[in-house]
Design a protein around this nucleic acid. Structure first.
Lengths: 183, 183
DNA sequence: TATGTTGTGGAACATCTTGTTCAGTTATTA
DNA sequence: TAATAACTGAACAAGATGTTCCACAACATA
């Protein structure tokens, strides 16, 4: 990809992320985005058909990155989900969030958190579906697989929400424990 | 309230509900609403400051009604939440939803379901907070009250979501059982 | 270095949406 | 019947959207 293209694209995405962490997505105008990104109007529309497409691509890029990290080397897939392991994916994700090395924490704290949590949940479901046998077997046997996967993903996402609403006072380890008790 | 005022207000709310069940809230214009409601533009703005206020009032009206119904006469408050009772509030709510005697089902099936589920959850939390001792005591003892209330409300709301996504194939009784197993 | 291609910036534009205003009409109330 | 309140319809300014055009800068290739 042309360097100019890459620069414009990233400037737009960056500006959009900043705006998303400040105000509701509906109140963000294209004019604001291009002003902050310091990019021409025509350039914006050369990259993104509409604001909705911009959002969609942002979500994909952001969560693609997260899920890559959560399953990255050093952690063995099978290992990741074991509930008593110090390094379950879930704790890993809480830690990742706390460090805020991606910009996602700001977005989850914003008015738009719904948007990101929803998307995040969908990604999670895929991860969980492969590893479901590592969770509470009694529950699993009484519930449709589909329901149970949805349940686990929901509880995780809602735990994140609660954690953030509570100003992230708990450590990743503590909140992970709560998650495993609740789920 | 003047009959004319009441008629206009209800025509607007009705039109808005219909549109909400068809398309995303962001794509609904005031012009569409007033056309469908058959009401003048000035009338709309005499009733609602902006579209956002309209949405807010709609949510309040809708859920106020639901929570009234869910705690209505014939059901004793203490009784409502007992998990093995045939008439727990939760089953009651599932039944209510299935009958669709309020328009809420269409809204929960629409693109805007997030909106309504979120609002619903907040209302639920207040209900649950008073009755928390009726749930799994072991979990309750290990978790902050606040976390546990949020957890129950979340699981209920996400169970509704799953049920609806699954075309409501299960009976209210069955889905209520799943809910109690999961929570 | 010269050449053709591609992306960018900026302005101008038509179109749509919003929220306000106003004058004329209809319904309610006393 | 008279006064009051709400409604209609149209017109309006302000702002947002998405497109088009052109001059210019950055890139790739020879």
């Amino acid at each position: 990809m042309d360097r100019r293209q890459r620069k414009s694209r990233e400037a737009i995405l960056k500006a959009f992320i900043e705006l998303l962490s400040q105000k509701n997505v509906n109140q963000i105008t294209v004019s604001e985005i291009i002003e902050r990104a310091d990019v021409g109007r025509a350039t914006f529309y050369a990259h993104f058909e509409t604001k909705d497409f911009l959002l969609k691509e942002l979500l994909e890029e952001l969560f693609c990155h997260i899920f890559d990290v959560s399953t990255e080397s050093g952690h063995d897939h099978k290992h990741l989900f074991s509930c008593d392991s110090d390094s379950s994916v879930f704790q890993h994700l809480f830690e990742h969030l706390q460090k805020n090395d991606n910009q996602i924490l700001a977005l989850l704290k914003s008015d738009n958190n719904e948007l990101f949590l929803r998307y995040f949940k969908e990604g999670l479901k895929e991860l969980i579906a492969d590893q479901i046998e590592l969770f509470n077997k009694e529950k699993a046997s009484k519930l449709p697989r589909d329901f149970f996967v949805n349940h686990i993903a929901s509880v995780f996402v809602e735990t994140i929400r609660w954690w953030i609403d509570d100003k992230m006072r708990l450590t990743p380890q503590e909140i992970t424990e709560y998650f495993y008790i609740a789920v």
